[in-house]
């Protein structure tokens, strides 16, 4: 497995359900865990990453804080519609340091990945980095 370079794959965050201009959703894929995207109240919350072409993904690793339950969906179409369920995971609570969770996507091919945070350990949660391996 090798690390996928999200920037060279033309990956973009095309939708995020919360917006704090100081903590934009682009921070999710900037390879820096010091910068983050923060949710601004209530659940569920989600963000969608688009690749410029169908991409095979073995695992995705999420660095986050206070996320309780994450659901991942994907599609292989050009538009961000008609998603199908891939997997879901309950994250452990970590106090004072980031959660880091590797999730297997079984080498599925996708043009969009949709990350749905269905619940959190606090009113607000943050996502610091998403990286992928193929």
């Amino acid at each position: 497995m090798t690390d996928l370079s999200l920037s060279s794959l033309g990956a973009k965050v095309v939708l995020a359900t919360s917006s704090d201009e100081n903590h934009p959703a682009e921070n999710i894929i900037d390879r820096n865990t010091k910068t983050y995207w923060m949710t601004t109240g209530m659940f569920p919350q989600e963000f969608i990453i688009r690749f410029s072409e169908p991409t095979q993904i073995a695992t995705v690793t999420l660095d986050s804080y206070n996320v309780k339950h994450m659901k991942i969906e994907k599609n292989t179409s050009q538009s961000a519609t008609q998603f199908e369920f891939v997997t879901e995971k309950e994250f452990e609570s970590t106090e004072g340091h980031l959660q880091s969770n590797a999730i297997s996507l079984n080498g599925c091919s996708a043009t969009h990945l949709r990350f749905i945070i269905t619940s959190g350990y606090d009113h607000f949660v943050s996502v610091h980095n998403v990286s992928m391996k193929n």
């Binding site: 704090d20 903590h23 865990t33 983050y36 923060m38 660095d63 804080y65 970590t94 004072g96 340091h97 980031l98 959660q99 880091s100 606090d122 009113h123 607000f124 943050s126």
Partner: peptide, 12 residues
């Protein structure tokens, strides 16, 4: 308050 706390987190 929570944003401040996230800012001061140590890496996982």
């Amino acid at each position: 308050e929570r944003r401040e706390a996230v800012q001061n987190l140590s890496p996982g």
